[in-house]
Design a protein around this nucleic acid. Structure first.
Lengths: 129, 129
DNA sequence: AAGTTTATACGAAACATTTCGTAAGTCAAA
DNA sequence: TTTGACTTACGAAATGTTTCGTATAAACTT
């Protein structure tokens, strides 16, 4: 199927995307086993979700074998960027900086992580010269 | 009505919250006028949404006059923090730092903004000592 | 080969969200 | 006082999401 525009995944769909990104191509069984560790979910529910995600173009699948193997259709970082843009727009009126400040202010980041961010900022500022 | 737990606002609801945060307490008419500038939406649609938001506890209202006046039930920053936590969990597997890096990497922030963030980081690092 | 387990497909119920039509009341102007 | 504009309340259609039961076929076990 062809898709002019990929829709934003729902929360449930994103949960499954996470599994596919973390573990690579996987069967319904595999996805459902991992999903079941976190919450109560039936096998056919997971199957149906993956089928819908396939129709939406969120995942691809290999159905040469009886057990189909699903795979994320997008890189995690690309999807994150899209979700981030959307989130900044709706929750922070488009201000990524405000969002960053809020995230740093209340999430306890380690010193190493803070240093990493600081280094990125300095690199960005250098690029600006 | 009493509420044990306030649900996450939907996208449409958040759009209305933004208006209430930006302009303060407002009538359905006022909200709908602003909303209509961006997209096509009927008056009773906006009314219904505000009524539902009232039932959910997202807004309060003053109904002493015929024209009810609605008001956000939460500070914008509090809501942003809640949405942010949720977003980081679902989209970045809990890593606020990764999210920040991605936001800074792809959003063009001004030098002044970058400096502001750097200052915050240095303050946080000082607090860590 | 017969029975058990495992797979997909599909329909539909249950639930949530979005949208709006219609009814009924209030208010102000003609 | 009648008319018209404006208001809230409410029901319900339209759409999207989540869940699972059932049917059917394939593969494995004994």
């Amino acid at each position: 199927m062809s898709h002019s525009q990929i829709p934003r995944p729902t929360d449930s769909e994103l949960e499954i995307m996470q599994i596919l990104w973390q573990h690579g191509p996987a069967s319904v069984r595999f996805v459902n086993d991992l999903l079941s560790e976190k919450r109560d979910v039936g096998y056919t529910t997971t199957l149906k979700l993956l089928q819908i995600m396939y129709e939406k173009g969120l995942v691809t699948r290999d159905d040469t074998n009886r057990t189909h193997v699903y795979q994320a259709a997008f890189k995690e970082s690309d999807m994150q960027q899209r979700l981030l843009d959307q989130f900044v727009d709706t929750a922070f009126r488009g201000s990524a900086v405000k969002m960053v400040m809020q995230a740093l202010g209340n999430h306890r980041a380690s010193r190493a992580e803070l240093d990493e961010i600081k280094a990125l900022i300095e690199k960005l500022e250098k690029d600006k010269e």
